[in-house]
Design a protein around this nucleic acid. Structure first.
Lengths: 144, 144
DNA sequence: TTATTAGTCTACTTATTAAGTAGAGAATCA
DNA sequence: TGATTCTCTACTTAATAAGTAGACTAATAA
């Protein structure tokens, strides 16, 4: 399961993607609209800024804005950044690999195979889910 | 990520599947062989018994054994039993559905679509990963 | 140049869940 | 009857998630 933090991050990014190239958006606005505790959201946006997905401006008229095109930011990146590994076990993770303490022999572990498969399918879908696509989908759902 | 508990459950089940129809296996044996804390393993096996996957026998010569064919037990069942939902959000879970507090309108949420897709692909793979297949795979890996 | 606005950042607190343990009890067998 | 092995409730401890406080810095505009 995704953490609330990650869910918040995604919703905030979608919100910013909808307002891409329309100037900075204040934390307070996102917090109000998306029902995310402001202080918590601050920390999340800061993390996204450090990851060079967002940039910010201080002072009056300031706020946060995307510095990547919405078509270049996808759910895989965001989930990895906020929640860490996408794989179901550390020993099948590409970005956060760790040995299993239990398995004496990783090579002969019959479970890994299925989980590698799950990981690959998941990455394919999440990597293909860009903010641009999500915004587009929401628009089409709303006009129905 | 899977919990340790779930990982333990899977390893214990694979161990028992390898010894299917060879009589009861003691908790201590599984614990020793798979490096699982005995008391913790007791609780896990009990849960699997309550789910009618295992049965047990008390007293001398007792222990646990599978009461389903290894081809009828898969990772989807075990993960759902031990860890709960497989979906990445409660609002896309088939067996553990819950409304999202944040999303005002689930119908127009552009994120769900991708996560439904991830869920379906994951279920397909996990549902297809039976104990029988895992045991077979381990055997073939070991003889290499 | 000062007041105001808005993000920055460290250091918390609190709540929840995961992981593991203790120990008395019940069934089975020799 | 006594040893063996699972049963089950009730813990403890550790880790992580979720949320908060407050002082600080940068930008803007009167």
């Amino acid at each position: 399961m995704l953490s609330k933090k990650c869910k918040y991050a995604i919703h905030a990014l979608v919100y910013l993607a909808e307002r891409h190239e329309q100037g900075p958006v204040q934390i307070q606005d996102i917090s109000d609209d998306q029902h995310i505790p402001k202080k918590f959201l601050e920390a999340i946006l800061l993390e996204l800024r450090h990851a060079k997905i967002l940039e910010s401006k201080k002072g009056k008229g300031g706020g946060y804005y995307l510095i990547k095109d919405p078509s270049e930011v996808n759910l895989m990146q965001v989930m990895r950044l906020i929640d860490g590994p996408i794989a179901l076990l550390p020993c099948v993770s590409l970005n956060y690999y760790e040995r299993c303490d239990e398995c004496r022999n990783e090579k002969t572990c019959g479970i890994r195979d299925s989980l590698v498969h799950v990981r690959d399918e998941t990455l394919k879908i999440l990597g293909n889910s860009t903010l641009a696509k999500i915004v587009k989908r929401e628009k089409s759902l709303k006009t129905k």
